[in-house]
Design a protein around this nucleic acid. Structure first.
Length: 200
DNA sequence: GCAGTGATCATA
DNA sequence: ATGATCACTGCC
């Protein structure tokens, strides 16, 4: 039995961070494609820790009634209106930091929420587990920030991705029901990526 | 099932 | 200045 949890990308070596162009697309597309990638955080010791992303949610823009950008730019959501590939971090319920990455075109408030990565189930637990707080807000996802994404090695097969309505957005009318949450069984990810690597 | 928690935003 | 709201979690 490995000392490292399989969901922590133990089979992954350092790879080039996903570039801003990856995020400059529709949020639902980015949310899907982030499944199976590694969320990488540099620890206090300088060592990167890798966490397989297995759950995401897309927030599409001002017309999306569940999106923070729906009421226009404010101090809190300003980062969402900026260029793609930056972290958008905000405090929820006075206790939990939510980690998002901005997507699409500048001026359009769209982003993807990271709801599950590595052993961390739930958006508040991801940030708690990785030590993420407001200080990341507005920073480009990359080594400079100490927080970035790396390719997982292969795309997760579409048939293994479950789509459901987003969590906690019951206030959003029709938009509450749209299937913009993307989930893959974390237990299957390492095997999936490993076998894909072998094929390559 | 529901309290805790406090920044944020609309209203005044 | 004040009150409602909230992309959640942990414990009942």
């Amino acid at each position: 039995m490995s000392a490292i949890h399989p969901r922590c990308c133990e089979n992954q070596v350092a790879a080039k961070p996903l570039p801003p162009e990856f995020f400059a697309r529709a949020a639902d597309r980015v949310a899907r494609d982030l499944l199976g990638t590694c969320l990488v955080v540099r620890g206090p010791d300088g060592r990167p820790a890798r966490h397989l992303v297995f759950e995401t949610e897309a927030y599409l823009g001002a017309h999306d009634l569940a999106c923070h950008g729906r009421t226009g730019p404010t101090k809190r959501n300003a980062t969402m209106f900026g260029p793609a590939g930056r972290w958008y971090v905000y405090l929820c319920y006075g206790m939990h930091w939510m980690l998002n990455v901005v997507t699409g075109s500048a001026g359009v408030p769209a982003a993807v929420l990271i709801r599950g990565a590595g052993v961390h189930v739930g958006p508040g637990r991801v940030t708690k587990g990785l030590g993420i707080d407001r200080s990341f807000d507005g920073q480009p996802a990359g080594r400079r920030a100490g927080l970035w994404f790396e390719p997982g090695g292969s795309a997760v097969p579409r048939r293994l991705i479950e789509r459901t309505p987003r969590i906690g957005v019951d206030y959003a009318g029709d938009w509450a029901e749209k299937p913009l949450r993307f989930v893959v069984d974390p237990a299957r990810l390492p095997t999936m990526l490993r076998s894909a690597k072998r094929r390559v």
